[in-house]
Design a protein around this nucleic acid. Structure first.
Length: 164
DNA sequence: GCCACCGGTGGC
DNA sequence: GCCACCGGTGGC
């Protein structure tokens, strides 16, 4: 069944055992609604960058079709977080990371720049380009999206469940 | 002095 | 009311 409405069918996940960063990448097929693991961050981001115009289907994953069993079950053995669709592809040399806060209140989005600096917001990107003008032609602020994913509360560990 | 982490808020 | 964004700071 279709887990979510509309376009929000892109996800990343925290693996179990208290991982704080999203480290499993998965997308939902628009036809059979099974989840397919995308082995690399880059592959995941490629799909995510154009998700609305070019929705994911199982056959886009090599040697995979809707007849195959799901790659991963949506359950609370991991915490699932759902990325927004159509986030620009991360510029080459940068790495986009999602870090869960203590208490699972929200995730922070960072870009790690090629020089190791961690960029936290658009103003940091501007500062980085100012200090490293060789990137002026390659990247612009619009290549970055710091929007955090939606945390799926039904997949939080029991210890983090919201008090009623 | 840096940076991981968190709190607050302005704009939608 | 939410959340993207930014400022502040405690611990190293």
């Amino acid at each position: 069944m279709n887990l979510l409405n509309g376009d929000d069918l892109i996800s990343s996940m925290l693996s179990g055992n208290g991982s704080k960063t999203a480290d499993i990448w998965s997308v939902q097929c628009g036809e059979c609604f099974k989840w397919r693991i995308i082995p690399t961050r880059e592959g995941f981001e490629e799909i995510r960058s154009n998700f609305t115009d070019d929705p994911f289907v199982c056959t886009k994953k090599p040697e995979t079709s809707c007849d195959d069993p799901t790659d991963i079950e949506y359950d609370n053995s991991r915490t699932w977080v759902i990325d927004k669709p159509n986030i620009p592809k991360t510029p080459s040399g940068f790495k986009r990371s999602l870090v869960m806060r203590k208490g699972f209140s929200k995730m922070d989005c960072y870009y790690d720049a090629p020089n190791g600096k961690r960029l936290r917001a658009p103003t940091d990107v501007v500062k980085f380009i100012d200090k490293n003008p060789e990137y002026k032609k390659e990247v612009s602020v619009s290549d970055f999206s710091f929007a955090g994913p939606k945390i799926m509360e039904d997949t939080l560990p029991a210890s983090a469940a919201k008090k009623v």
